[in-house]
């Protein structure tokens, strides 16, 4: 293929990506009203190949969002309601003694709900750390190991976890290692009065919105993810992303004043990866073929907010990771 043809093909792939993204977002918008940022965040993470932690009070449509996404992208969806008595095997699956065709009994792996393309881990912080950590391997390696045998997960694989920030009693906060595996942490805000009107209009009538399937199969998603990763960026832009991550470390010379005062641990290299990937998608959505600092900055809050751990002073002073990120962004503007 000649260079011109290859460029034209790539251009068409990019156009396809933009169109697909917008169509899926529009389909999600049918069910989720007034949550544009959340919808865009979920889709960015979806095309970047990451997982999303949704945080919001009950009744804001988090579960609905995930279900709608699965419908729109035409992928297999499963939901796991996390409770304190939930065991890892309940998620991953287990080996069971089964009778084969010859009448002999043998161990057969019975897959758990994790074997889906889109997994909703509802109220993830209600399960014990042991169960929470069962997700670690699946989220990072995209396979699970049971009885010494690795069982690969189907691509694309995405975990969307939700947690309620209010009811903290009887919950188990996610460990840092688990949090770091989430591409984005998105806060689901309470809808405005106008949005509520729309929600009520749509949900209290006989007819319910029908979600169309935008994608045909999983391979299309994998292809579009490949397109995203081709977006180039100048070394200065990459430096900017690194600067932002370094600025969240209290011991770094680039740390801001509040970082030094309130932060215990800063973002990991996964954070920098997430910034770049999210930046690439933002660039494509902005009709550009290159990443800019603005794209990185736009992704920074969702990427970094769960990767920054506040120290005791920060907690006592009521500092938030968002305020620290805002200061970091201002420092490197």
């Amino acid at each position: 293929m000649s260079t011109t043809a290859a460029t034209a093909s790539l251009e068409s792939d990019v156009e396809q990506f933009r169109a697909t993204f917008r169509r899926i977002k529009a389909e999600l918008g049918k069910m989720m009203v007034g949550q544009d940022e959340v919808l865009e965040g979920v889709l960015v993470a979806f095309f970047a190949g990451g997982h999303v932690l949704l945080e919001g009070v009950p009744g804001l449509g988090k579960t609905m969002l995930v279900r709608t996404l699965a419908d729109a992208v035409n992928l297999k969806f499963s939901r796991v309601q996390f409770t304190p008595d939930l065991m890892p095997a309940d998620i991953i699956g287990t080996n069971m003694i089964m009778e084969n065709e010859n009448g002999r009994k043998e161990f057969q792996f019975q897959s758990g709900p994790i074997f889906a393309n889109i997994v909703l881990a509802d109220e993830i912080n209600r399960a014990t750390p042991k169960t929470q950590s069962a997700l670690l391997e699946a989220m990072q390696e995209h396979h699970v190991t049971v009885g010494g045998t690795q069982h690969p997960l189907k691509e694309p694989f995405m975990v969307l976890a939700t947690q309620n920030p209010l009811e903290m009693e009887g919950t188990y906060p996610l460990p840092e290692a688990q949090l770091d595996r989430f591409f984005f942490k998105l806060k689901v805000p309470y809808p405005s009065a106008a949005d509520l009107h729309t929600i009520l209009d749509r949900t209290t009538v006989t007819e319910r919105p029908i979600v169309s399937k935008v994608l045909q199969d999983a391979a299309e998603v994998v292809h579009l993810r490949g397109v995203v990763r081709q977006v180039p960026l100048a070394s200065e832009i990459q430096t900017h992303a690194i600067d932002l991550v370094m600025a969240t470390h209290p011991d770094s010379e680039k740390a801001t004043q509040r970082t030094r005062k309130f932060v215990r641990y800063g973002a990991s290299p996964r954070g920098a990866q997430a910034l770049i990937l999210a930046g690439k998608i933002h660039a494509l959505l902005d009709n550009r073929f290159h990443v800019s600092c603005a794209d990185i900055d736009k992704a920074a809050p969702a990427v970094l907010r769960h990767r920054i751990l506040l120290n005791f002073e920060g907690e006592a002073e009521g500092a938030t990771t968002d305020s620290i990120i805002a200061e970091v962004l201002q420092a490197f503007a």
Binding site: A234, E236, R288
Partner: peptide
């Protein structure tokens, strides 16, 4: 949106297709 910087960067090494697209844009 860093177009000057990107154009300057890719003006010398726009071998890849996506870089070509970026430089052109």
């Amino acid at each position: 949106n860093d177009r000057f910087l990107t154009a300057l960067t890719f003006s010398n090494s726009a071998s890849e297709n996506m870089r070509n697209l970026a430089l052109r844009e």
